[in-house]
Simulated scan of single mutants.
Amino acid sequence: MKLQGNVSLSVGWITLFLMGTDLFVVSPLLPFISEAYKVGSATTGWMVTVFAITYAFSAPFFGWISDKKGRRTFITFGLLLFAISNTLTVFAPSFLWLIVSRILAGLSVASITPLIYAIIGDIAPPNRRGTWLSIVVSGHLTALWAGAPFGTLLEHFLGWRSVFVVMAIIGAILVVVNFKTWKSIPKSNLTSNLLGGNLLRILGSVSVTTIWAISMYTLYVYLGAALYSENRFSSSEIALAVTFYGVGAVLGSLTSGQLTDKFGEKKISKATLIFLALILICLGVFFSSGDWIYFFLFIWALVGYAGFTSYQARLAVEYPKERGIVMAWNNTALYIGITIGSMIGGYAISNWGYPPLPYVCSVAAIVSFILSTQKVQETKKESAFSANIK
Rank of each mutant, 00 (worst) to 15 (best):
G224L: 09
T260P: 01
V250L: 04
L280E: 04
L254I: 08
L276Q: 05
L227M: 14
G290T: 06
Y311R: 00
F275E: 06
G257M: 00
L273V: 05
A277Y: 05
S215M: 05
L273A: 09
T243L: 14
Y311K: 01
G264E: 05
G224H: 07
L280S: 04
T309A: 07
V242I: 15
W300D: 10
L315C: 03
L280F: 07
S236Q: 14
V206K: 01
V250N: 02
L302I: 07
N198P: 13
L254E: 03
S310C: 03
S289C: 06
A249Q: 06
E322T: 05
N198M: 15
G197K: 15
S215P: 09
Y294S: 04
L297D: 04
L297V: 09
I274M: 09
G246E: 02
T218H: 09
P320I: 07
I281Q: 03
T272N: 01
V247F: 08
L227Q: 08
G246K: 00
L315W: 08
L297P: 01
Y319L: 06
G224Q: 13
D261C: 06
Y305I: 08
K321N: 14
E322V: 05
Y245L: 13
F263P: 07
Y220C: 03
L278E: 01
D261K: 05
S205D: 14
I211E: 00
K262S: 14
Y228Q: 15
S236G: 11
Y222V: 04
G252N: 02
K262E: 12
F233I: 13
L223D: 09
S234H: 10
F244C: 11
F244Q: 07
T209W: 01
S288L: 04
T255M: 10
S205F: 10
F286K: 05
Q312N: 12
A306F: 09
F275V: 11
A306N: 11
I274N: 00
Q312M: 11
I211M: 01
R201W: 12
N231W: 08
I211Q: 01
A225D: 15
S234I: 12
F295Q: 11
N231Y: 08
S215W: 03
L297C: 07
F286H: 08
F275P: 03
I202K: 02
R201A: 12
S234V: 12
Y311G: 02
